[in-house]
Design a protein around this nucleic acid. Sequence first.
DNA 1: CTCTTCTATAAGCATTTGCTTATAATATAA
DNA 2: TTATATTATAAGCAAATGCTTATAGAAGAG
Lengths: 104, 104
Amino acid sequence: MKYFDFAPVFKAMSDEKRLKIIDLLSNGSLCACKILEHFDFSQPALSQHMKVLVDAGLVSGVRVGNWMHYSLVKEKYEEVISFVKQISSENKEHFCDEECGKCK
Amino acid sequence: MKYFDFAPVFKAMSDEKRLKIIDLLSNGSLCACKILEHFDFSQPALSQHMKVLVDAGLVSGVRVGNWMHYSLVKEKYEEVISFVKQISSENKEHFCDEECGKCK
DNA sequence: CTCTTCTATAAGCATTTGCTTATAATATAA
DNA sequence: TTATATTATAAGCAAATGCTTATAGAAGAG
Protein backbone atom coordinates (compact mmCIF):
# COMPACT_ATOMS: atom_id res chain seq x y z
CA MET A 1 0.00 0.00 0.00
CA LYS A 2 1.30 3.37 -0.90
CA TYR A 3 0.73 4.85 2.54
CA PHE A 4 4.02 3.33 3.56
CA ASP A 5 5.58 6.03 1.41
CA PHE A 6 3.80 8.77 3.32
CA ALA A 7 5.01 8.03 6.84
CA PRO A 8 8.27 9.96 6.21
CA VAL A 9 6.27 12.85 4.75
CA PHE A 10 4.12 13.12 7.88
CA LYS A 11 7.23 12.73 10.00
CA ALA A 12 8.69 15.76 8.24
CA MET A 13 5.47 17.63 8.99
CA SER A 14 5.37 16.54 12.63
CA ASP A 15 7.50 19.42 13.88
CA GLU A 16 6.09 22.90 14.57
CA LYS A 17 9.15 24.65 13.24
CA ARG A 18 9.07 22.75 9.98
CA LEU A 19 5.38 23.58 9.55
CA LYS A 20 6.33 27.20 10.07
CA ILE A 21 9.02 26.87 7.41
CA ILE A 22 6.45 25.45 4.98
CA ASP A 23 4.19 28.38 5.76
CA LEU A 24 7.03 30.83 5.21
CA LEU A 25 7.75 29.31 1.80
CA SER A 26 4.13 29.24 0.68
CA ASN A 27 4.26 32.69 -0.87
CA GLY A 28 7.50 32.10 -2.72
CA SER A 29 11.06 30.90 -2.37
CA LEU A 30 13.37 32.15 0.36
CA CYS A 31 17.06 31.69 1.05
CA ALA A 32 18.12 29.80 4.15
CA CYS A 33 19.55 32.86 5.86
CA LYS A 34 16.18 34.61 5.57
CA ILE A 35 14.28 31.65 6.95
CA LEU A 36 16.71 31.53 9.84
CA GLU A 37 15.72 35.03 10.94
CA HIS A 38 12.36 33.67 12.04
CA PHE A 39 13.83 31.19 14.51
CA ASP A 40 15.91 31.12 17.65
CA PHE A 41 17.96 28.03 16.89
CA SER A 42 21.32 27.83 15.15
CA GLN A 43 22.19 27.75 11.45
CA PRO A 44 23.11 24.04 11.52
CA ALA A 45 19.74 23.30 13.12
CA LEU A 46 17.99 25.01 10.22
CA SER A 47 20.16 23.16 7.73
CA GLN A 48 19.07 19.88 9.30
CA HIS A 49 15.41 20.88 9.23
CA MET A 50 15.70 21.80 5.54
CA LYS A 51 17.30 18.46 4.80
CA VAL A 52 14.34 16.69 6.41
CA LEU A 53 11.88 18.70 4.32
CA VAL A 54 13.84 18.17 1.10
CA ASP A 55 14.27 14.44 1.72
CA ALA A 56 10.52 14.16 2.27
CA GLY A 57 9.90 15.83 -1.09
CA LEU A 58 8.02 18.73 0.48
CA VAL A 59 10.64 21.36 -0.36
CA SER A 60 13.18 21.77 -3.12
CA GLY A 61 16.44 23.69 -2.89
CA VAL A 62 18.62 25.22 -5.56
CA ARG A 63 21.92 26.96 -5.05
CA VAL A 64 22.13 30.45 -6.51
CA GLY A 65 25.65 31.66 -5.94
CA ASN A 66 26.28 31.61 -2.24
CA TRP A 67 22.62 31.17 -1.35
CA MET A 68 20.30 28.22 -1.19
CA HIS A 69 16.86 29.11 -2.47
CA TYR A 70 14.18 26.88 -1.02
CA SER A 71 10.65 26.57 -2.35
CA LEU A 72 7.62 24.34 -1.87
CA VAL A 73 7.00 21.36 -4.11
CA LYS A 74 3.34 22.17 -4.60
CA GLU A 75 2.43 18.83 -6.19
CA LYS A 76 3.56 17.04 -3.05
CA TYR A 77 0.88 18.74 -1.00
CA GLU A 78 -1.73 17.66 -3.53
CA GLU A 79 -0.46 14.12 -3.06
CA VAL A 80 -0.72 14.45 0.71
CA ILE A 81 -4.28 15.76 0.43
CA SER A 82 -5.43 12.95 -1.83
CA PHE A 83 -3.70 10.43 0.39
CA VAL A 84 -5.49 11.68 3.49
CA LYS A 85 -8.77 11.56 1.57
CA GLN A 86 -8.08 8.01 0.47
CA ILE A 87 -6.90 6.59 3.77
CA SER A 88 -9.88 7.98 5.67
CA SER A 89 -12.58 7.11 3.14
CA GLU A 90 -14.85 4.08 3.15
CA ASN A 91 -15.73 1.70 0.36
CA LYS A 92 -12.24 0.93 -0.77
CA GLU A 93 -10.03 -2.09 -0.64
CA HIS A 94 -8.12 -2.35 2.59
CA PHE A 95 -6.57 -4.89 4.89
CA CYS A 96 -9.52 -5.87 7.05
CA ASP A 97 -12.77 -6.44 5.22
CA GLU A 98 -13.95 -9.44 7.19
CA GLU A 99 -16.25 -9.04 10.15
CA CYS A 100 -14.80 -8.84 13.61
CA GLY A 101 -15.63 -12.31 14.87
CA LYS A 102 -14.33 -11.86 18.37
CA CYS A 103 -16.38 -8.76 19.05
CA LYS A 104 -19.61 -10.78 18.73
CA MET B 1 -1.14 30.25 13.91
CA LYS B 2 -3.24 27.17 14.12
CA TYR B 3 -0.64 24.93 12.50
CA PHE B 4 0.97 24.61 15.90
CA ASP B 5 -2.03 22.44 16.77
CA PHE B 6 -1.37 20.13 13.85
CA ALA B 7 2.20 19.07 14.61
CA PRO B 8 0.95 16.39 17.05
CA VAL B 9 -1.56 15.18 14.46
CA PHE B 10 1.15 14.70 11.85
CA LYS B 11 3.35 13.08 14.48
CA ALA B 12 0.59 10.55 15.08
CA MET B 13 0.47 9.94 11.32
CA SER B 14 4.25 9.65 10.99
CA ASP B 15 4.33 5.93 11.73
CA GLU B 16 3.59 3.27 9.11
CA LYS B 17 1.75 1.04 11.53
CA ARG B 18 -0.51 3.83 12.69
CA LEU B 19 -1.31 4.70 9.07
CA LYS B 20 -2.20 1.06 8.58
CA ILE B 21 -4.48 1.22 11.64
CA ILE B 22 -6.23 4.26 10.19
CA ASP B 23 -6.69 2.38 6.94
CA LEU B 24 -8.08 -0.62 8.80
CA LEU B 25 -10.62 1.57 10.58
CA SER B 26 -11.72 3.42 7.47
CA ASN B 27 -14.48 0.96 6.65
CA GLY B 28 -15.86 0.85 10.17
CA SER B 29 -14.99 0.38 13.79
CA LEU B 30 -12.89 -2.53 15.02
CA CYS B 31 -11.98 -3.81 18.44
CA ALA B 32 -8.36 -3.70 19.55
CA CYS B 33 -7.94 -7.45 19.49
CA LYS B 34 -8.97 -7.53 15.82
CA ILE B 35 -6.60 -4.75 14.88
CA LEU B 36 -3.83 -6.58 16.65
CA GLU B 37 -4.20 -9.57 14.33
CA HIS B 38 -2.75 -7.50 11.52
CA PHE B 39 0.52 -6.80 13.31
CA ASP B 40 3.50 -8.64 14.70
CA PHE B 41 4.03 -6.55 17.80
CA SER B 42 2.61 -7.07 21.27
CA GLN B 43 -0.74 -6.06 22.75
CA PRO B 44 0.77 -3.27 24.89
CA ALA B 45 2.45 -1.89 21.78
CA LEU B 46 -0.93 -1.65 20.06
CA SER B 47 -2.46 -0.05 23.14
CA GLN B 48 0.22 2.62 23.03
CA HIS B 49 -0.32 3.22 19.31
CA MET B 50 -4.06 3.59 19.89
CA LYS B 51 -3.41 6.09 22.65
CA VAL B 52 -1.31 8.19 20.29
CA LEU B 53 -4.08 8.16 17.67
CA VAL B 54 -6.80 8.96 20.20
CA ASP B 55 -4.77 11.76 21.81
CA ALA B 56 -4.25 13.28 18.36
CA GLY B 57 -8.00 13.25 17.77
CA LEU B 58 -7.74 10.96 14.76
CA VAL B 59 -9.45 8.00 16.40
CA SER B 60 -12.08 7.61 19.08
CA GLY B 61 -12.53 4.63 21.35
CA VAL B 62 -15.53 3.40 23.31
CA ARG B 63 -15.62 0.46 25.65
CA VAL B 64 -18.33 -2.10 24.87
CA GLY B 65 -18.18 -4.69 27.60
CA ASN B 66 -14.74 -6.20 27.54
CA TRP B 67 -13.84 -4.68 24.19
CA MET B 68 -12.61 -1.32 23.04
CA HIS B 69 -14.23 -0.31 19.79
CA TYR B 70 -12.11 2.13 17.84
CA SER B 71 -13.31 4.21 14.94
CA LEU B 72 -12.09 7.13 12.85
CA VAL B 73 -13.00 10.70 13.70
CA LYS B 74 -13.86 11.61 10.11
CA GLU B 75 -14.07 15.34 10.73
CA LYS B 76 -10.45 15.36 11.85
CA TYR B 77 -9.29 14.24 8.43
CA GLU B 78 -11.27 17.05 6.84
CA GLU B 79 -9.44 19.41 9.17
CA VAL B 80 -6.11 17.93 8.16
CA ILE B 81 -6.96 18.28 4.48
CA SER B 82 -7.98 21.92 4.78
CA PHE B 83 -4.92 22.63 6.87
CA VAL B 84 -2.59 21.18 4.24
CA LYS B 85 -4.39 23.20 1.60
CA GLN B 86 -4.02 26.35 3.64
CA ILE B 87 -0.40 25.97 4.65
CA SER B 88 0.74 25.28 1.10
CA SER B 89 -1.33 27.93 -0.64
CA GLU B 90 -0.19 31.40 -1.71
CA ASN B 91 -1.85 34.76 -1.20
CA LYS B 92 -2.51 34.42 2.47
CA GLU B 93 -1.15 36.09 5.54
CA HIS B 94 1.99 34.44 6.82
CA PHE B 95 5.12 35.20 8.74
CA CYS B 96 7.41 36.49 6.03
CA ASP B 97 5.81 38.89 3.58
CA GLU B 98 8.77 41.21 3.20
CA GLU B 99 11.22 40.72 0.38
CA CYS B 100 14.38 38.76 0.98
CA GLY B 101 16.90 41.59 1.16
CA LYS B 102 19.95 39.45 1.52
CA CYS B 103 19.22 37.33 -1.51
CA LYS B 104 19.40 40.45 -3.72
C1' DC C 1 45.87 33.45 -4.19
C1' DT C 2 43.35 35.20 0.59
C1' DC C 3 39.36 36.63 3.02
C1' DT C 4 34.60 36.67 3.88
C1' DT C 5 29.85 34.87 3.57
C1' DC C 6 26.53 31.29 3.31
C1' DT C 7 25.49 26.53 3.90
C1' DA C 8 26.41 21.63 5.13
C1' DT C 9 28.46 18.04 7.92
C1' DA C 10 30.46 15.80 12.17
C1' DA C 11 30.37 14.65 16.89
C1' DG C 12 28.25 14.81 21.30
C1' DC C 13 24.33 14.99 24.33
C1' DA C 14 19.51 15.19 26.40
C1' DT C 15 15.00 13.95 25.21
C1' DT C 16 11.65 11.23 22.81
C1' DT C 17 9.95 7.12 20.55
C1' DG C 18 8.64 2.36 20.06
C1' DC C 19 9.19 -1.79 21.56
C1' DT C 20 9.63 -5.48 25.24
C1' DT C 21 8.04 -8.12 29.66
C1' DA C 22 5.54 -7.87 33.82
C1' DT C 23 1.68 -6.30 36.15
C1' DA C 24 -2.68 -3.99 36.94
C1' DA C 25 -7.31 -2.74 35.77
C1' DT C 26 -11.84 -3.82 33.81
C1' DA C 27 -15.56 -6.72 32.60
C1' DT C 28 -17.83 -11.19 31.76
C1' DA C 29 -18.95 -15.94 33.10
C1' DA C 30 -19.26 -19.88 36.19
C1' DT D 1 -16.32 -15.53 45.20
C1' DT D 2 -12.87 -17.40 41.40
C1' DA D 3 -11.42 -17.82 36.76
C1' DT D 4 -10.92 -16.01 32.21
C1' DA D 5 -10.57 -12.51 28.54
C1' DT D 6 -9.53 -7.89 26.97
C1' DT D 7 -7.19 -3.71 27.53
C1' DA D 8 -4.10 -0.34 29.97
C1' DT D 9 -0.07 0.94 32.62
C1' DA D 10 4.78 0.62 34.47
C1' DA D 11 9.59 0.04 33.95
C1' DG D 12 13.50 -0.71 31.15
C1' DC D 13 16.12 -0.40 26.95
C1' DA D 14 17.83 0.49 22.06
C1' DA D 15 17.24 3.61 18.43
C1' DA D 16 15.84 8.03 16.63
C1' DT D 17 15.23 13.07 17.11
C1' DG D 18 16.64 17.85 17.72
C1' DC D 19 19.65 20.68 19.42
C1' DT D 20 24.51 22.38 20.42
C1' DT D 21 29.56 23.69 19.06
C1' DA D 22 33.23 22.95 15.94
C1' DT D 23 34.62 22.25 11.44
C1' DA D 24 34.37 21.77 6.49
C1' DG D 25 32.78 22.93 1.89
C1' DA D 26 31.23 26.22 -1.74
C1' DA D 27 31.09 30.57 -3.97
C1' DG D 28 32.02 35.55 -4.58
C1' DA D 29 35.08 39.84 -3.62
C1' DG D 30 39.50 41.85 -3.57
